[in-house]
Amino acid sequence: MPTDLRRPVRTYTIRQLCLEFKCTPRALRFYEDKGLISPARDGLNRVYSHKDRGRLQLILRGKRVGLSLTEIGEILDLYELDDGGATQNAKSLMKFRERIVALEAQRADIDQAIEELRRGCDALERHLAQTRPDLLPRAADYDQMLRERLGDLEHAK
């Protein structure tokens, strides 16, 4: 008497996936238009499978690390190959390493820009100290206000 050990069929509504992954229905429809997910239909309603949910999870992870939708699609399409995921894993590894290199280059560019801005601030402060020292306290207040605003933005995420 064989038993069916497969996972029971579980489906999700667009609302359930949006709540779970903190995304919008528009985003899910967009991914569907791009062919990244393909929900079934029940009348006008989209019905997402366990596979669609998994694909959405990978799409959002890929986006978070900066992969393009085309790159994500290429990786997702390799899931269909019958090689135990080896080709998909190899492609993912290559794309991930490329992103690491690109992000490290961006980090170096950002570090350089910050250094240039700090030197610029130092030069401007020296110049103001000589010509208009009355403006310096306002500059410090402005800097503090910006830091507080940035902190508020970070906490809002």
Rank of each mutant, 00 (worst) to 15 (best):
M1V: 13
L5H: 15
V9I: 05
V9T: 08
R10I: 06
R10V: 14
Y12S: 02
I14K: 01
R15P: 02
Q16V: 14
L17K: 07
C18R: 02
L19M: 15
E20G: 07
E20S: 00
F21W: 07
P25G: 12
P25K: 15
L28Y: 02
R29W: 02
F30Q: 02
E32R: 00
P39S: 03
R41V: 00
D42V: 06
G43W: 01
N45H: 09
R46W: 01
V47Y: 01
Y48K: 10
Y48F: 15
S49L: 02
G54P: 00
G54L: 11
I59T: 05
K63I: 14
R64T: 03
G66M: 05
L69P: 01
L69K: 09
T70W: 15
T70V: 14
G73W: 01
E74C: 14
I75A: 03
L76A: 03
Y79R: 04
G84D: 04
G84T: 04
G85P: 04
T87E: 09
N89Q: 07
K91W: 15
M94T: 08
M94V: 02
F96E: 14
V101Q: 04
A102C: 10
Q106C: 05
R107G: 09
I110D: 03
E116N: 07
R118Q: 13
A123Y: 07
L124I: 10
E125H: 11
A129E: 02
A129G: 12
Q130E: 10
T131G: 01
P137T: 08
R138D: 08
A140K: 09
D143H: 09
R147K: 03
E148D: 11
L153I: 10
A156F: 10
A156G: 12
